[in-house]
C-alpha cells in the first residue's frame, strides 16, 4: 500500500485534483463564513437602473446575477449543492450497482439473468432523456435530484461489479471454501466483497465527476434543483440568454463545474492506475 500511495502521490495531476477537491470542500463547508453576502438576497443596487446585471466590481467581486444577487456568494453555496449531490447520488448509485451486481454475479440462475437483462434494458435508454423524465415526474428537490441521478447512473457500475464477481466466484479456492461448508454470507463478505473494494473506490471517485456534470446539466435545462437554491448549472440556466452581454454569469460557474468534475476525474484515474492497473480507458 505504501508503494501505491507513493505512486499516487507522484502523480502530479492527481495531487492537483486532491488540492482542488479540498478547496471546493472548504468553500462548501465554510460558505456562510466566507460569503460576503447572503446567497439569496436580491440587492436593489445589484442591478443597473435599467435592470442589467453588474460586472465584477469592488462590492460584488464576481458581479451580480439577473436578480441583483452576489454571484460570488451564490458560487460558494453552489459548491454545497454540487458536492452534496455528487457524493450522495454517486454513493447511492454505487450502492445500488454493487448490490445488484454482486447478487447477479453470485446467485446467477434466474434472478441473476433477470437482473442483468434489466441492466441491458436500462443501457438502451437514452440516459439524459430518462433523467429529464424522472425529474419531471418527481418535482425535484435537492435529494430528489440526487435520487434521479442515482437511478440513471447505477447501471454501468452493476455491470462492472457483476463481471468481477463472476470471475471471483469461479475461482477454485471459492469452490474449495464452499465445499468445506462455508455459509454464503461468509463467502460473500469475507472472500468476494473485499476483492471488489478497489473497483468500488475507483467508481466512487470517478462517478462523482459524471454526477456533478449531470446535476449541472439538469439544472441547466431547468429541471434540476429548485430555485432559489444556488446551483452552478442553475445559474447558467438563468443567465444563458444574456451571455453575450454578461458572459461572467456563464463562465465563472462554468469554470467551477469543470474544475470540480476534472478534479474527481484526475483523482479517480490515478486511483485506478494504482489499485487496478488492468482497467484503463473508458470503462
Amino acid at each position: 500500500m505504501s508503494y501505491s500511495l507513493k505512486k499516487f502521490l507522484r502523480n502530479r495531476l492527481a495531487l492537483f485534483g486532491m488540492v482542488m477537491i479540498l478547496l471546493f470542500s472548504i468553500a462548501a463547508i465554510f460558505a456562510p463564513f466566507i460569503a460576503p453576502h447572503p446567497p439569496n438576497k436580491q440587492f436593489f443596487e445589484g442591478l443597473s437602473i435599467e435592470g442589467a446585471p453588474l460586472p465584477p466590481n469592488t462590492k460584488f467581486w464576481l458581479g451580480t446575477d439577473l436578480l441583483g444577487r452576489s454571484l460570488f456568494s451564490r458560487l460558494l453555496f453552489g459548491a454545497r449543492t454540487s458536492l452534496l449531490i455528487g457524493i450522495a447520488a454517486n454513493g447511492a448509485a454505487v450502492l445500488i450497482g454493487a448490490f445488484l451486481g454482486i447478487i447477479a454475479g453470485y446467485v446467477k440462475g434466474f434472478l441473476g439473468t433477470a437482473i442483468m437483462r434489466f441492466t441491458d434494458l436500462m443501457m438502451a435508454f437514452p440516459a439524459l432523456l430518462l433523467a429529464i423524465a424522472l425529474a419531471a415526474i418527481f418535482n425535484p428537490s435537492l435529494w430528489i435530484v440526487a435520487l434521479v441521478i442515482a437511478l440513471v447512473n447505477w447501471v454501468q457500475i452493476a455491470r462492472v461489479i457483476y463481471s468481477q464477481t463472476v470471475t471471483l466466484v469461479e475461482q477454485e479456492y471459492i469452490e474449495a471454501i464452499r465445499s468445506i461448508g462455508a455459509s454464503w454470507p461468509r463467502i460473500l463478505f469475507v472472500h468476494v466483497v473485499p476483492h471488489l473494494w478497489p473497483t468500488l473506490l475507483v467508481w466512487g471517485t470517478l462517478g462523482i465527476a459524471t454526477t456533478v456534470l449531470l446535476e449541472a446539466t439538469l439544472s441547466f435545462l431547468g429541471v434540476g434543483v429548485r430555485p432559489p437554491t444556488p446551483s452552478w448549472g442553475g445559474i447558467i440556466y438563468e443567465s444563458q440568454s444574456y451571455f453575450l452581454d454578461a458572459p461572467w454569469l456563464v463562465f465563472f460557474p462554468g469554470a467551477a463545474i469543470m474544475l470540480l468534475s476534472l478534479s474527481f476525474n484526475l483523482v479517480g484515474d490515478a486511483l485506478r492506475d494504482v489499485l487496478d492497473p488492468t482497467q484503463r480507458g473508458r470503462d
Partner: peptide, 18 residues
C-alpha cells in the same frame, strides 16, 4: 483530455459561441 471530458457541454457550447 480530462478537461475536455469534464467541461459541461453547455458551457463549452456557450464559450465557443461567444
Amino acid at each position: 483530455s480530462f478537461a475536455g471530458v469534464s467541461i459541461p457541454q453547455f458551457v463549452l457550447g456557450l464559450l465557443l459561441l461567444y
